[in-house]
Design a protein around this nucleic acid. Sequence first.
DNA 1: ATAGTTATTGCAAAAACTTGCAATAAGGAT
DNA 2: ATCCTTATTGCAAGTTTTTGCAATAACTAT
Lengths: 138, 138
Amino acid sequence: MSCASEYVSQLRARGFRMTSQRLAILHALRHAETHLSPRDVFKRAKQDLPGLTEPTVYRTLEFLAENGLARPSQTGNGHLMYEIAGDNHHHIVCRICGAEIEVEHTLLEHLYHELESTSGYLRIDSHMTFFGVCPACQ
Amino acid sequence: MSCASEYVSQLRARGFRMTSQRLAILHALRHAETHLSPRDVFKRAKQDLPGLTEPTVYRTLEFLAENGLARPSQTGNGHLMYEIAGDNHHHIVCRICGAEIEVEHTLLEHLYHELESTSGYLRIDSHMTFFGVCPACQ
DNA sequence: ATAGTTATTGCAAAAACTTGCAATAAGGAT
DNA sequence: ATCCTTATTGCAAGTTTTTGCAATAACTAT
């Protein structure tokens, strides 16, 4: 509850509205320790808000991502997962067991600058998920 | 046709079989200049092979990707697209107009090594799609 | 407080993707 | 050539994700 007001003002400032659905979904993301699938979000948020429907969850996650309140995260199977926006980091996922760790964004900053200068594209920035083999599985 | 034999032997060597479905799908990927969605692949390959079904396309694309004959490519909306495996490159897509260019893999090699040494994960390698704003849209 | 504007939701139906299992057919052995 | 084994496919049904539109409710202005 207490964390809600900052989200409210972020949306208001852009002419959007805060709704109970958005709050429930933000709450679900906020209290998850990892990223969640749309279905996970639906199940959790529905506990707070029984009337919630699935299309709303999909649309809201996309909306929150566009507005910087949630971070979409690519997974290997081509499905998006979401987590609450926070500090900028990326993931490495083990191809074999699925174990997952975070990577500081600073490690990628140099690459992004290089990409910008060689490609002419600007404002390159996205959440990346890399795949590898974790120490335990090696 | 002529390109088929090399694929056949790659599969045989691993105990897999070459089928008309796989050939049609490889053919569709090979003659596309860009990456294709599963549905695109289905539509194109079905012209060669009218009996082809959609589940087969999904399964085959995943299979080809696992075996290095096709390359899955993350897109912004969280859906996988596929292209024929060839030289190792990545993409930058314009957030605004969707224009897309390739990025040499060599640009990322340094990053991958750094990730491996700091994370302990090995064999990090995946096709990356970055998002930015292209020169025309800036 | 109340009314008006319009962003947002729910519903229902469609499209995209997945899964289990029986039938088929590719490739090796005879 | 023919048979056998089993990888692979098609079918049918399920689940997940998307879409259009009418109904709702959040915020603004009065």
